[in-house]
Design a binder for these strands. Sequence first.
DNA 1: TACTGCTTGAT
DNA 2: TCAAGCAGT
Length: 485
Amino acid sequence: MPHDPPAQPDGPSVMWFRTDLRLADNPALAVAAERPLVALYVLDDGANGARPLGGAARWWLARSLRALAAALAAQGVPLILRRGAAAEAVPAVLRETGAGLLAFNPGETPIDRAAEGAVTAAVAKSLPHVAVSHGVRRSALIHDPASVGGRVFTPFWKHIRAAFVPPPPLPAPDRLAGAAAVRSDALNDWELEPTAPDWAGGLDESWAPGEAGAAKRLADFLDGGLTGYATLRDRPDLDHVSRLSPHLRFGEITPAQLWHAARAAMASGRATSLDVEKFLTELGWREFSYNLLNQRPLLAEANIQPRFDAFPWRQDEASLAAWQRGLTGYPIVDAGMRQLWQTGWMHNRVRMVVASFLVKHLLQDWRAGEAWFWDTLVDADPASNPASWQWVAGCGADAAPYFRIFNPVLQGEKFDPHGDYVRRWVPELTDLPNAVLHRPWTAPPGVLSAAGVTLGESYPAPLVDHAHARARALAAFQTIKAKAA
DNA sequence: TACTGCTTGAT
DNA sequence: TCAAGCAGT
């Protein structure tokens, strides 16, 4: 039996990194950095009951960990990687390093808090000399889900805007000092990155995971995309969204940093208050989603409105597969699904259109779509992804009414008016004229052949007729509507 | 952050 | 003939 080294209350600190893969505005790191530092990341990979990361998120995590390791290594601090239950891995590293302080930022999901509770209990039991710090304040959210509730977005956000102003972001620690290193897993052995090279290739071209990549993305957004954000953010053919969601998801940047950067851009006249307020509202939906997750830990599994438990979803693997591959015959839907597959991301407007299409036109259970997004989106988080699916499906809190059924033709014509977005992701339709680009089945045969399009061969005929699907969805809704009263 | 079908009134 | 407004889904 090996015995523990003597307790060292003044020993080094262990910073347990979680979904906070950054050095700046990191309250726990600010405390941990006052001592020689051991940086630790634990891949629980389901060990704590958490949902295993999807494929795209695993790719992102690998890249983000590499970026964090490089930033730490530049200051002489190795990043220690361990795999397994945090309640075993964290105390083990504390013991091996003779640490006197454990620091970590509190998580914002019930499962994360359960994991940290288990860690804290294990430390208190077997390493009572180790102090535990959660840093000086919360940083993953603007608001405190324990102190605010609500099921309706507008009053929720109004309250948050009035009651919570994020404090100025903390700078990265001036300097870090490494403690003696201990064993680490090799990142490559975790096999986080997809073996299909074409997938990783598309992700590589689209993203720069890590804190530096997040800062550059924010700077680029403030330099261009934020201007006109209030209206142009709905245009998938333009570049007026922030694309910061995956950086936020892994804690490479904080909402407080975004908040203050956006307000500063307004103060310096680079952005209007309308644009900034719209941008902050998008952060608000993220806050709202985390609030819901804390109210409803089974957000990804259970309808918030129980009457939807009786909804007559269709089982149709072929339709689901056509949707996943971007072969529905509706150009705006197919463009979005292909953008998702090729880049791990989809424009928000198009997310609503494709989600509505799956749930209402194809009558597929929203959980099937949520699972696909979870696997393929680099930004899928345990709150926003299920909350947004429930919103679209109509079964969520403050949800869009079920009878709000997007018309994929009108949505395409309204938000991709020149067809640039469709032509980029559905190149087989490139030569169709704008007048029929979003509804190729209405094009005269001569127009189709001139564009080299053969419906059913070079591009699918519509999987379902819109008017028929709309009527069918409303009829399905009628079967559960009576139960609401 | 909806669509559809219908009416009304301008042309 | 159609834009605009409205109600119902």
